[in-house]
Nucleic acid binder design. Structure first.
Length: 577
RNA sequence: GCCCUUGUAGUUCAAUGGAUAGAACAGUCCCGUCCUAAGGGAUUGAUGUAGGUUCGAUUCCUGCCAAGGGCACCA
């Protein structure tokens, strides 16, 4: 992982090319005695339109009753008087856009910066000295770790890294449901399977849960029986149940750790519903009459008063529900880590539920509520519909990784690299994570084994492959003793797009951080890798020529950028594949 | 019924209110003496629907249609 250190100030002045342009535009506008709040700057879709573009002339034209193109010309005249050195030319285009073309010197200088900043390239300081806790993955012991958890993990891990790269200290948190009805269902199912020991294998647990869940729906007697088990788990007063419970929990958690290792997540803090339960119950009881009220033997929060749902916090059995546990969790978290911000990542089906929890939190712990941000991601669904561990209609994370890895190994059959198995797993996990992180966080993914996972084009392996190619070029340059050089200014036909994309990386990271959207990084990297692959196809990089040292420098800048970018996505960048 | 999401090529996804709506996969056609062809190049093809706001709408607003999610003792 790149070391996050305090970056020195001059690096920042570099990143601020955007700021330089905005300032120049604003100054020009002010000189014309016009006013503008925020200068909108964007990268035109077409490289031919330049590197940055602003629409100020069009937005201001109406105010002053001028033709936008003429106004743009006037603004440009002022900009040109004090033209920033990074700018080569400024032109009017289209309906009145002002397009900035940056100089070749700027691009060369930005390559130097990429190399100089090395593993810090792309990072920023916007969250300096902030402490953030990010909760994600949240699987439940006694249930399967399925591809929905994989989704939460991929997104949570990437958001954590993006936040870290923006200067914050991040604690990764995992909240696991080790008590509650689902556990009782699994225990009931286990007892009725005739299995003697949970320790034999953990796959029994998933099936046991499915059995219990089905029986719970089907018969009133079983329902009561399972509720009884639930109470016993909570009270810990039955030796047989305690044994199944303790072994089952242990096995589940060990299994989860294996998966986290494969996925590249290392949690700092673990929280359990069993610890949140009693605290939640107490919190609710202390606030009956103030926040909560009794209804049909349960303690509820009347969310309807606030346009939300009414929900049960302590059920009529006297047991705390998920709602009160989540409330307690917020308190426990804040006691364990003095954070400025707490981010909770769950599937979108919990969106309205969590709003109720937040509404309660606002009343009981207003300062915590203010620091809490709930991010919901879409659901991973199967072509057949919603995945359900109750019916056993699930794809486990492990089986998915295994299957994809087998396909990768098949593709690598002619390869002669040493640690094929490990690399295959890195590629498999990369492919899976990419398919999750390539789209915006809130959207559902209809998961189809054949269609969702690609090794070509818009895919994780495409990025990894581009990185290994660059790596191979650098190896060769080393062997042929070609030293990196950025002192001359060369126009390399096949490198223009690459040059024009590399310097944008820090902007992309900033935006991904601001909006909690890793897919900006994904999209950018894919475009960047495409530019590199074109460059690679058009230009011979390692050769005996004047431009070779610069082309090698470009290659290294690319390798460095994609390496840092893949890290942000939580995808490994193998040297060979 | 009420509330929340989402509707973009055949498919999976992009697009900060801007310029000719980008990619990838699939289809058709090229590229192998050369640093890894998991690659490069060319080509066919899309904004659910009806209005509104705006100099400009895939993006904002409203209606309709469609899909998904949520709505008291599950998590």
């Amino acid at each position: 992982m790149p070391k996050i250190a305090v970056l020195n100030v001059f690096l920042y002045t570099y990143v601020m090319i955007r700021g330089v342009l905005k300032k120049a535009i604003k100054k020009a506008v002010t000189s014309l005695e016009l006013e503008i709040e925020d200068v909108h700057l964007e990268h035109p879709a077409e490289l031919a339109y330049g590197d940055y573009s602003t629409n100020v002339a069009m937005t201001l034209a109406k105010q002053v009753g001028k033709n936008p193109k003429e106004l743009a010309e006037e603004i440009i005249r002022y900009i040109v008087r004090n033209k920033p050195e990074e700018v080569e030319k400024v032109k009017v285009a289209g309906a009145g856009f002002i397009n900035f073309h940056l100089s070749q010197e700027f691009f060369v200088k930005s390559i130097e910066e990429v190399l100089k900043q090395d593993d810090k390239w792309g990072s920023n300081n916007s969250l300096k000295s902030q402490k953030t806790m990010v909760e994600y993955t949240d699987p439940n012991p006694f249930k399967e770790f399925h591809i929905g958890h994989l989704m939460s993990n991929a997104i949570g891990e990437s958001i954590s890294r993006i936040i870290e790269f923006s200067g914050a200290k991040v604690k990764r948190a995992n909240y696991q449901g080790d008590v509650g009805l689902h556990v009782a269902k699994a225990i009931w199912g286990f007892q009725h399977r005739g299995s003697t020991s949970v320790l034999e294998n953990s796959s029994e647990l998933g099936k046991a849960y499915a059995d219990g869940a089905r029986a719970y729906e089907e018969g009133e007697d079983v329902k009561e029986e399972i509720k009884g088990i639930n109470k016993k788990v909570y009270d810990r007063n039955d030796d047989e149940i305690n044994k199944i419970y303790d072994d089952g929990k242990k096995i589940s958690l060990e299994h989860f750790e294996e998966i986290y290792k494969k996925l590249g997540t290392k949690f700092d803090e673990y929280f359990f519903e069993s610890e949140a339960g009693p605290i939640g119950k107490k919190l609710v009881e202390e606030n009956i009459g103030k926040v909560f009220e009794k209804s049909d033997g349960a303690v509820i929060f009347k969310g309807e008063k606030y346009g939300l749902h009414t929900r049960v916090f302590v059920n009529s059995e006297g047991l705390p529900t998920y709602e009160s546990k989540d409330l307690a969790l917020a308190k426990i978290k804040s006691e364990r880590y003095d954070y400025n911000k707490s981010i909770v990542i769950t599937a979108s089906e919990q969106k309205e539920y969590y709003q109720v929890v937040l509404a309660v939190m606002k009343k009981i712990f207003p300062s915590i509520a203010e620091k809490t941000k709930h991010i919901t991601h879409g659901m991973m669904r199967l072509p057949s519909g919603k995945m359900s561990s109750r019916t056993g209609d699930v794809i486990t994370a492990e089986s998915l990784i295994d299957e994809v890895r087998e396909r990768v190994i098949e593709k690598m059959k002619d390869s002669d690299i040493d640690n094929k198995e490990d690399i295959a797993e890195e590629i498999a996990v990369g492919a899976i994570k990419y398919s999750i992180l390539k789209q915006s966080v809130g959207k559902d993914i209809i998961f189809n084994m054949d269609k969702s996972l690609s090794f070509e084009g818009d895919s994780g392996p495409y990025l990894q492959y581009a990185h290994t190619r660059a790596n191979a070029v650098l190896e060769k340059a080393k062997v042929e003793n070609i030293k990196i050089q950025t002192s001359g200014v060369y126009i390399i036909e096949g490198a223009i797009e690459l040059e024009k994309l590399l310097y944008r990386f820090p902007e992309v990271v900033e935006r991904a951080n601001k909006e909690y959207e890793p897919h900006y990084v994904t999209t950018y990297l894919t475009k960047l890798a495409g530019a590199f692959n074109s460059f690679y196809a058009k230009e011979k990089i390692v050769e005996k020529s004047d431009t070779a040292p610069y082309k090698v420098a470009l290659t290294e800048a690319f390798a460095n950028t994609i390496k840092n970018g893949l890290w942000l996505l939580g995808i490994k960048a193998p040297d060979r594949m």
